[in-house]
Nucleic acid binder design. Sequence first.
DNA 1: TTGTACGCGTTATCAA
DNA 2: TTGATAACGCGTACAA
Lengths: 363, 363
Amino acid sequence: MSTGIRRATIADVAREAGVSTSTASVVFSGKVNVADATRQKVLAAAAALGYTGPDPRAASLRTGRSGIVGVVLGGELRHAFLDPVTTAMMDGLTDALASISTGILLLRDDPREDEPPAIAEAPVDAVVLIGCSTRAREVLDVVRQRGLPVVVIEGDGGDDVPQVTLDNREASATIARHVLQLGHRRAATITLPLDSARERALITPAREASATVSVTLDRLAGFREAFPDAVAITAAGSLVDEGYLVGRMLLATDDGALRDDRPTAIVTQSDLLAVGAIRAAEELGLRVSEDLTVVGFDGIAADGLGSLELTTMAQPALEKGRAAGEQVTRMLEGEAGESVHFTCEFRAGETAARPAVRNSPVE
Amino acid sequence: MSTGIRRATIADVAREAGVSTSTASVVFSGKVNVADATRQKVLAAAAALGYTGPDPRAASLRTGRSGIVGVVLGGELRHAFLDPVTTAMMDGLTDALASISTGILLLRDDPREDEPPAIAEAPVDAVVLIGCSTRAREVLDVVRQRGLPVVVIEGDGGDDVPQVTLDNREASATIARHVLQLGHRRAATITLPLDSARERALITPAREASATVSVTLDRLAGFREAFPDAVAITAAGSLVDEGYLVGRMLLATDDGALRDDRPTAIVTQSDLLAVGAIRAAEELGLRVSEDLTVVGFDGIAADGLGSLELTTMAQPALEKGRAAGEQVTRMLEGEAGESVHFTCEFRAGETAARPAVRNSPVE
DNA sequence: TTGTACGCGTTATCAA
DNA sequence: TTGATAACGCGTACAA
C-alpha cells in the first residue's frame, strides 16, 4: 500500500497547510483575497508536497472551460504545415487568440469514416473550421450540438454560423479576364483538389459534379467566366511538385515533346502550383512570360521564383485568421459572432504577357 | 427553473432509455459487450436528447488521459508557422502521433514573465519541447513535476530527458571549413537569434555570454572553428528579410556603397537568412557566387532562389519531428524513451565558389 | 448482461 | 477572510 506514486491533490495541500480545500484552491486561482500568512502556509505546503497547481482536467470539468481553441483542418494535418496560406492564417489566428487562450488544438476532420470526428472528444472552448471538405457538415453538427462557438473560414457553414469568406469566384474571374485581355485564347487551369481523395486528373463534368471543395469550385467558376471551354486539370494538392507535374501534362507529350495544342496561358489556383508550372515550362525550354503566361493565386509564395515576380491575386491570409480569432473571442465573451468578408487584390508580376504571334490568329 | 440550457448527460440518457448509467456509458465506450436491443434503446435516447457523447472534460478527469500531446514552441507561435524547419518537424510529429493522439496542442513557452508556463494548465498526456529558449528549464520542471512524458527537440533538457538532437556544431564546422578551403579568408556569419529578445546586433563577447539559444551558439562555435575572428551578426529571426538587412550591413555602408572590407563569404545559420543575404548582394550588384559566396543551413528553403541552388547543410527536419513523436508514443505505452541523434549532410549548390582575385593576397 | 456506488480533483456557493 | 458542502460528468470495480 501507499506506493507513493499518487500525485498530491489540493486536498493534500490543504491538509498539510492546515486550511480548508477551498482556501487552498483560492490561493492558486487568486480570485479572492487571502491573508498573506495563509497564502504562505499553503504555498509552503504545496512546495513540500510537490504540488504544481490544479489539475487542468479537474479544473476544466468544474469551470467548463479549458482555455483551448480547436482548429479543424481539412485533410491531413501535415498538409496544413506545408501550405503557406494555412500557416499564415494560423499565424493570424494565434495572434488574435493570444489573450484568451492558452493554446490551439490542431485537429483533422477526416479520420476513419466510421468514427465521429475528433472534435467530438476534444476539450475545447471554441472551434475554428478551416477549409474543410466533405465532413464539414458533420463536424459542424457535432460542434453545434456541443454548444460550442464556431467560426468557419472559407467553408459552407450555412445559416447562422459566422464565416470568414474570400471573393474566390470574383478574384479568379478578375485574373482570368486579365489573361483574356492580354490576348490569350488557349488557356488552361490547374485547380486545387476537388475532394479529399486528392487525385490528379482531368476535370470532367462528372468529376466536377461530385466535387466537394468549394474553394476549388468557386475559383474554377470564376475562371470559366473568361474561358468557358478551357481544359482544367485538378492537382493532388497545393504543391510545387503538383504544379510541375500538371504543367508538364499540359505542355508536353509523354515523350517530352512540346504539344502543338499546348495552352499559351496557365491559370493556377495557387502560387505553389504556379511555381511548379513555371518550372515545368522552363525545363521544356519555354520562357515565362514570353512563350507562356502563368498566373497564380494567393500572393504568398512569391519567394519561390527568385527575381521573377509572379502575377497573382493576393489574398489577406493572415487577416483571415486574425478575423476568425477575433470573432471567436467575441463569442466566448458572450457577444454574437459576425461574418467577415475579404477580397483579393490583383498583383501584376512578370509572368503574364501577350501571347506570342504563333497563337494570335487562332480561330 | 429548468431554463433548459443545461446539456444532457449520460445519466439523462440512461434514465430516458430506462437503463443504468453504467450501461449507457458502456454503450458509448464500446469496451464491453452490450445486448443489441439495449444499445439501440440507449442510442435512441441519446438522439432524442441530443446527447453527442461523453463530455471530454469529465471523461478525461476520470481516465486521466486527454488524447492530446502538447507541443511547446520557443517564442511566439507565429514564428513557428513561418519557419519551414519547424513546420517540417511538426509535419513529422503529427505523422508519428496520428495513431495515439486526437490532436496536438500548440503552446508557447514565453508568456508574461510572472506567470507559470501555459503548459502547467494544459490537459495534455505528453509534451514535446521544440527549440526552446530561456524558459525551457522552467517548462521542463513543470512538466516533470506533473509527471508527463516529455521529449526535447534540440534543447538542453539535461539528464534523463529523451532528446532529439542535431550535430549543429559539427555541421557548421563542416560547411565553414568548406568555405575556408575554397580560399576565403574574410568571412562573416549571420546567426539565428541569441535569445528571446531577438535583437539584430553585432555579436560581442558580452552579448554572446548572455545568449540562451543553444542552437545558435552551437552553430556559431562550429563556424569559429574555421573562422575564429570573423564578424558575427545575429539576426532578429530566421527570416528572408532579416538576412537581407544583415547582408546589407555586412556588404555596404549606410549610403549604399560597397564596403572595401566586406566579406568574400557569408555563412548563415539558416537557408532563409541565406536567401535574404543573396538578395542583398544581388541588389548591390554582386554576383553570387562569382563575387560573393553565401551558404545556408537547413536544406529546406531551396525554393526561394529560382534556379540557383543554395549550398547548405541539409538537416532531416521531418525525421526529427517523427522521431520525437515515436518516442512520445513509446513513453505513453510505458516504455522508456530514448534519445535520438541526427546528422546534417553537406549539399553542394551553386552559391559557393573560390573568392575573386581581389581577395586572394590578403594577409 | 446490468445496476449500485464511489471517486477522479476541482471550484462555486453560501454561511460563518 | 475562511470553511463546509455540493456539484461538475463520467468510468469502473463489484455485486447481482
